[in-house]
């Protein structure tokens, strides 16, 4: 099921126009270290797309290439293009990109520790100029999605729990009224139940606000349940992509990313290396 739709790109598979597309980009750090070797992906209007892969596969780099946080780390997109609704956005500063509606929620949450939860949320509205009333309204909206944050609104963010910090980080991004949210590893370091809860809220936000989401995750299982389409990255290349249900059925994904296979659970020790090479990099 769904196998015939593999590899056709998220926009075509989901039947929605691509809001953001990344075309064959190459990223080099410090002028020498080649990290991404031609990554292409699409985020359709209003969709949730998962970017999967192991540690060091290039998920975070891809996200930072889109949000343009790369330049602050001496990384550079040297080839390819990134377009938002058809317009090239590579040269924009993060500030301009946030104004245009693309915002990243960084891996490891990165809350402003000495600011209160509410102040953290308000910093997300930095780029907006509609006046206090609209911002106050959005603050209430964020509190509706994350009631827990309303309770902790006056606590210093550094003293809140990991889950609350993740909620703060997502809420902060929402305050910028984004069109596309790049979510980097929201499940990191959180209890499974909390992960489920946060993903549920993200899904609700996606449905109610029409925010498109690119979700970078190591937790393939959860990510494929909430995303509609998935791209799998390995060593800086997209090695496979397809609708989430098709990916979940795929034998290789099952084996290497979900830890399942026809012969039952399998240890990585028994996987022959050449087989993986052949499958993924051929």
């Amino acid at each position: 099921m769904g196998q015939e739709r593999m590899g056709m790109g998220a926009a075509a598979a989901l039947g929605a126009p691509a809001l953001l597309s990344v075309n064959n980009i190459e990223v080099i750090y410090d002028h020498v270290i080649l990290v991404l070797k031609g990554v292409s992906l699409e985020i359709p209007q209003g969709g949730i797309v998962a970017l999967l892969g192991a540690n060091g596969a290039g998920k975070t780099t891809t996200l930072k290439a889109i949000s343009n946080l790369l330049r602050a780390e001496r990384g550079d997109v040297t080839k390819g293009s990134i377009t938002l609704a058809g317009e090239r956005v590579q040269h924009l500063t993060p500030n301009d990109l946030v104004r245009k509606g693309v915002i990243q929620v960084m891996e490891g949450r990165h809350c402003f520790e000495h600011l209160t939860v509410e102040e953290n949320l308000l910093t997300g509205a930095y780029t907006r100029s509609e006046g206090a009333a609209a911002i106050q309204q959005d603050l209430e909206m964020v509190y509706e999605y994350f009631p827990r944050l309303k309770v902790r609104r006056n606590s210093q963010a550094g003293y809140t729990s990991g889950g609350e910090q993740q909620m703060t980080a997502i809420g902060r991004a929402l305050m910028s009224r984004p069109k596309v949210v790049l979510l980097d590893e929201p499940s990191m370091g959180l209890a499974p139940q909390l992960v489920e809860q946060i993903f549920e809220i993200v899904k609700t936000i996606n449905e109610q606000q029409g925010v498109s989401i690119l979700l970078a995750e190591q937790n393939t299982n959860v990510a494929l349940r909430y995303a509609k389409y998935g791209y799998i990255l390995e060593s800086g290349r997209v090695v496979m992509d397809g609708p989430a249900d098709a990916l979940r059925q795929n034998e290789d994904v099952k084996e290497f990313y979900l830890g399942l296979s026809a012969t039952g659970r399998k240890s990585y020790r028994e996987v022959k290396h050449y087989k993986r090479r052949k499958r993924w990099l051929a």
Partner: peptide
């Protein structure tokens, strides 16, 4: 507090 995060929210 965190200039990377500040950059990411568009400051």
């Amino acid at each position: 507090d965190d200039h990377q995060a500040a950059l990411s929210v568009g400051i």
